[in-house]
Amino acid sequence: MHRLATLALALLALLLSGPVTGPGAVASPAIGPADGVRAVPVPAEAGAVDTSDPDRWVGNGTPQSCTSRAVVRAVAAGGVIGFRCGPDPVTIELRKTAKVVNTSRRVVLDGGGLVTLSGGGERRILYQNTCDPKQTWTTSHCNDQAKPRLVLQHLTLADGNATGERADGGGGGAVFVRGGRLKIVDVTFTGNRCDRTGPDLGGAAVRVLDQHRDQPAYVVDSTFTGGRCSNGSALSSIGVSWEVYNSTFTDNRAIGRGANPARSGTPGGGSGGAIYADGNDFHVLVAGTSITGNVAREGGGAIFFVSNDRTGTLTVRSSTLSDNPSLGFETDPGIFFLGRRQRLVDSVVE
């Protein structure tokens, strides 16, 4: 985080006996009637992918055939991946993290609403990093690589744990993505973890660094619950735009201590109970979404948003943010905002 944002946070930490607005923050009143959460239209690009003709399958029709090894191999091979694990819900506990190879054009995992991929509380579930030579180095501009495109849909990702994973800043208990593109549709994230302390480290469920040409990462019709991490215990990113539609965030907690950069004598972290977004020129849209019952030990029980160069924007539309305590500092209930423009449209924020 740049020095100006650092000074703003330091001032807020000293002043807090209630909600405040820091330098450069614009806290807009709600626009129009705030009548609770209602579904909003989703752009075609953010919708689910057609997986009726998969490139490969995990499993041969029985639960026993749907193994960790089969998932890891399918993700490495890439393409559209379906599951044949029988007619009943199945949980596949991964013994190794499934890693995307950077020569893949796209990797689509469709669980058909029956599949849970679990990290067993021991490991990260999915990993994509276009700047990791171990996953094949394809370009000197790895931080702006167009592919792979990772799509996760109709799945549950549970009990992922990236604690101790420090490459590229760590985080991403269920999913870590750097480069390419990411889309999440109808996915439930539950009980995921990453390191308990540390500044700028986050994403118990999802951590994203870089998207091709600064296009947004999409989250649609998804649920995030029970995440625990230093910061951003559902979504965490640096320099990444998000569009979040018709989703639910509950009981996610940013449990670090000392904010970012860390106050003297503290390990740092504790911001963005549900969503942590930091960087320069990036934009976050939250629409048709409920963010309720999340907690930040420092700032932004629901959303922590800091645009260091004050070019970034936050829009909350047709959504409800309630009971998201910020135990340190906030600019609106459950929100800490530092950027060019914040808009709360047809939303309840309390």
Results as ranks from 00 to 15, higher is better:
K134R: 14
K134M: 11
Q135I: 08
Q135L: 15
Q135W: 02
Q135E: 08
T136R: 13
W137V: 05
T139M: 13
T139Y: 13
T139A: 15
T139I: 13
S140C: 00
H141A: 04
H141E: 05
H141F: 05
C142V: 03
N143R: 15
N143S: 10
N143Q: 10
N143I: 06
D144C: 07
D144S: 03
Q145T: 09
A146Q: 08
K147A: 15
P148N: 08
P148E: 07
L150F: 12
L150P: 07
V151Y: 13
V151A: 03
V151W: 09
V151F: 13
L152G: 00
L152V: 12
Q153I: 14
Q153F: 10
H154M: 04
H154L: 07
H154E: 15
L155P: 08
L155A: 11
L155E: 06
L155I: 09
L155M: 04
T156P: 08
T156D: 13
T156W: 07
T156N: 05
A158P: 15
A158Y: 10
A158E: 12
A158V: 12
A158F: 11
D159F: 14
D159C: 08
D159L: 11
G160K: 00
N161R: 06
A162D: 06
A162R: 00
A162P: 02
A162E: 01
T163C: 04
G164S: 04
G164V: 04
G164N: 00
G164Y: 02
G164H: 00
G164Q: 02
E165P: 02
E165F: 05
E165V: 11
R166F: 09
R166D: 10
A167C: 09
A167H: 03
D168V: 05
G169T: 01
G170Y: 13
G170M: 07
G171V: 08
G171A: 11
G172W: 05
G172L: 04
G173N: 02
G173V: 00
A174L: 08
A174S: 13
A174N: 10
V175W: 12
V175Q: 02
V175K: 09
F176W: 13
V177G: 04
V177R: 10
V177A: 15
V177I: 04
R178W: 01
R178H: 08
R178L: 04
G179N: 01
G179W: 02
G179V: 04
G179H: 06
G179P: 02
G180D: 09
G180R: 12
K183N: 02
I184F: 14
I184G: 00
I184R: 02
V185P: 00
D186T: 07
D186F: 07
V187R: 01
V187F: 04
T188E: 15
T188K: 06
F189W: 01
F189V: 12
T190K: 04
T190Y: 14
T190C: 01
T190M: 05
R193Q: 11
R193I: 09
C194T: 10
C194G: 01
C194L: 03
D195H: 03
R196H: 10
R196V: 11
R196A: 13
R196Q: 14
G198T: 03
G198W: 03
